[in-house]
Design a protein around this nucleic acid. Sequence first.
DNA 1: AATGAATGAGAGTTCATTCAT
DNA 2: AATGAATGAACTCTCATTCAT
Lengths: 217, 217, 217, 217
Amino acid sequence: MKKKKAANPRRRPIQRRSRQTVDAIVEAAARVLARHGYAAATTNRIAERAGVSIGSLYEYFPNKDSILAALLERHTEQGGAEVLAALEAEIARGAELPALLRALVLALLRQHRRSPELHRVLFEEMPHPPGADACVLRSEDAIAHRLQAALEADSACRAADPDLAAHLVVQTAEALAHRFVLHGIHGLPEARFADELARLLLRYLGGDRSAEAPARR
Amino acid sequence: MKKKKAANPRRRPIQRRSRQTVDAIVEAAARVLARHGYAAATTNRIAERAGVSIGSLYEYFPNKDSILAALLERHTEQGGAEVLAALEAEIARGAELPALLRALVLALLRQHRRSPELHRVLFEEMPHPPGADACVLRSEDAIAHRLQAALEADSACRAADPDLAAHLVVQTAEALAHRFVLHGIHGLPEARFADELARLLLRYLGGDRSAEAPARR
Amino acid sequence: MKKKKAANPRRRPIQRRSRQTVDAIVEAAARVLARHGYAAATTNRIAERAGVSIGSLYEYFPNKDSILAALLERHTEQGGAEVLAALEAEIARGAELPALLRALVLALLRQHRRSPELHRVLFEEMPHPPGADACVLRSEDAIAHRLQAALEADSACRAADPDLAAHLVVQTAEALAHRFVLHGIHGLPEARFADELARLLLRYLGGDRSAEAPARR
Amino acid sequence: MKKKKAANPRRRPIQRRSRQTVDAIVEAAARVLARHGYAAATTNRIAERAGVSIGSLYEYFPNKDSILAALLERHTEQGGAEVLAALEAEIARGAELPALLRALVLALLRQHRRSPELHRVLFEEMPHPPGADACVLRSEDAIAHRLQAALEADSACRAADPDLAAHLVVQTAEALAHRFVLHGIHGLPEARFADELARLLLRYLGGDRSAEAPARR
DNA sequence: AATGAATGAGAGTTCATTCAT
DNA sequence: AATGAATGAACTCTCATTCAT
């Protein structure tokens, strides 16, 4: 019988050696998943690719799931940080809502484009045990939180509930970017898709001048 | 690695008896997945729950994956058909864009609510081998296609490319409904979420009078 | 139908430990086959008799067939080596054709007598997948090759084509010894059978003085 | 647990219908074995090829082994009868020992050549449960018996024990013909092989004039 | 007599995990 | 700390055989 232990690394990787080993394992898992798919990602194969014995692997991770969880977390956090940074940069340069949303959309597309195979395996092929998606939610929350602040500061935004609006925006952008990168929409070029998605978000938030133009007549 | 055989039932379930057995197996798979999760869904357990011998199970399905694929397909097609029907009904009664989008959102939420555990396992816990998601795309395409026609017939719609707009709307509604049912957004009640999502879609498509009202003053 | 993997041990048994394990498995297979027949030779039973876990068994052999193939090869090579040695010994002591052929026949009988049950299962009960018999052919070729050299050096031999003659002699001796050990000929004692078989071979090769005697009269 | 029943047909096929069905099944088994090998010869496949339901198959044969045993018996008896007939014909025309032995060798080669694939599967790939070879022994005995009578009547034969000699001759001829058809000897043409094998047998039995020729000088 | 859907014991094999070295 | 041979529970799937129709 298998005991399901908490999916946390066994030891805090404080020392450099440990940190390197943990990284090597997670990195190896990423490579194996991306190149050969979930079914081929056995612990022995991951250890081999990491240049580490299977025994050492289990020194750093209590079980297989914890490795995949760590990878998912790393992947999500890296991606989230990039998007957050892109957002921050745009805000810093005093961008208005339209530019902000475009930046969000482009950053998400870029992130998904980075290693689409890994992304696909991670989010479509790989089983997500209950709770595995917490880090995804956390990452989105962080982005939504930053966006909310921006919305509150932007007079063009007509959202009654900026928190809710920010969440909807982030989730929509994330979900649609994900789908577009993996499956496309007919033959639509990415640039046009980005435009359209940004337009959708902008209209929702109300900074859409062109939409109001007819009414001004 | 094992040769993946075509994921088609061995025997065309033309006769009533066969059809019943196939249904029983798929239904059993659904119950096992929903109640015990992906890891517990062994072929022997599914057969047992279906009240069928393991040999019979393999009389109707060439391998395990084909059972899960059939379940995914059934689930997706049923859901898609319901949403399509809801849309159709709304259109038939001459509903305008706002009511149409509300109906779409509510139908999707209803569908995801029906058996959220099965839904979660099917879409988050269960590995989706490459190609398994084709039926999901097909279902969304069908809904998008119907919606597109409605958009083209609706003078309030300002979408330049109704095909693209319809796809974005359906994908957004589907993705957010999915996420909301599984993870929620803070403690937001479903009714309010539905309102907000419908509002988002409506503003995108341009049938949003209230948004333009202030500008008229 | 299943993909047949190469019937080679996974791990080259270079280290002493590995070599021992491989031997233990092959030896266990021999015991199980001899004692309980082909039908009882399951991988689990072989592993158990070898005092090895089923997992370890598959560490050293890629599949069941490869174990049986290894056993067949070991059996054939051992037997062939013995016969070859007997032949060599006889040649070394300067034996003439009659003694040589007797030695060949006796060595083959001895070899088949050693574990007749294993021999029977290996060559009659066990399915031989195409190609499995290559090692048998190789072994016979080696013996025939040695015999050929002896024939060419023996002035009593009247064989026009020593290569062909050597092959016929070896195949005849092998086949008849095999049959005699497994099924006997009426109640014929082995000693008389050996005499007669040796006589048959001798007459073929022409070293048979007694046969020519009457004609001289 | 499987009960091993006696490998005899359940019912005496007296009626024409039954006889036809039995034949169809055995014939189907032959085709499946020859074309697809032992591993593919499942009872269901045999029944299908025979144009008979699996239920009917078990009406006529108590188990799978009995079908294969029946096929082996049919094959062996047919072959034996042909060889016997060839021998008889040669004797009837008053042939001498050399011609008789040539006829025996050629008949055996012809028989093995008829469906070498079936022959190979039947005698090398297929497991022969203990006792399955009784019919082969019987068939050879019959041929040996006829040959013995011929030897006793032939003044050229110098065999001291004609019964034993006949058995050795038949077994040698059979075994070597078998081996030659299945594996060949280097690139040797069949005609030369037949010559050499006949010469071997002839020298054994002593009707070899050419061998004695040198002595006459 | 004939059918063929149903059966289920048991086969081969995998792979996450352990632990003696 | 590190190793990797060893483990064995548990999996998917096959196929000879049965029996209700």
